[in-house]
């Protein structure tokens, strides 16, 4: 049986810390460039589906940075351009991408 290798010891959180962390999670707004990138992708999705269905596309705000068959090389290209991780998004060109009514469900009581 495998165990997770020990890294940094995790200090138990106080109730105050937990509450603060919970607030941080629920109040976390995506960075503006990511929101803008996702909006640009949504606008371009119908066109992208016609020519590049199944591919990946990177956006930095309204600017389309490139297309590739896989996420990782495209992601690395964006980082190589000097962009930080909260300034671009790599999206998958899929008909169901970013459905605004996307409700996540899972098996309850696992």
């Amino acid at each position: 049986m495998s165990t997770v290798p020990e890294t940094q010891p995790h200090r138990p959180q106080s109730d105050e810390d937990r509450a603060a962390a919970l607030r941080a999670l629920l109040e976390a707004d995506p960075p503006p460039m990511i929101t803008q990138s996702i909006a640009a992708f949504r606008r371009d999705l119908p066109e992208l589906l016609q020519k590049h269905r199944g591919w990946c596309v990177a956006y930095h705000g309204d600017q389309r940075l490139g297309l590739a068959k896989r996420e990782t090389p495209l992601y690395q290209q964006c980082l190589a351009r000097g962009l930080s991780r909260d300034e671009f998004v790599v999206c998958g060109i899929d008909p169901t991408a970013l459905d605004p009514d996307d409700e996540i469900e899972a098996t309850l009581d696992v």
């Binding site: 995790h10 962390a21 909260d86």
Partner: peptide
């Protein structure tokens, strides 16, 4: 869960860019 992500991997939500808010069984998540 956030606490499992932190305690099992050392990653906290602050180290990974948020993409969007979502809802899981009607409850807010990210």
């Amino acid at each position: 869960r956030r606490d499992q992500l932190l305690s099992w991997t050392g990653m906290d939500i602050g180290t990974l860019p948020p993409l969007r808010r979502v809802r899981v069984h009607g409850r807010e998540a990210i």
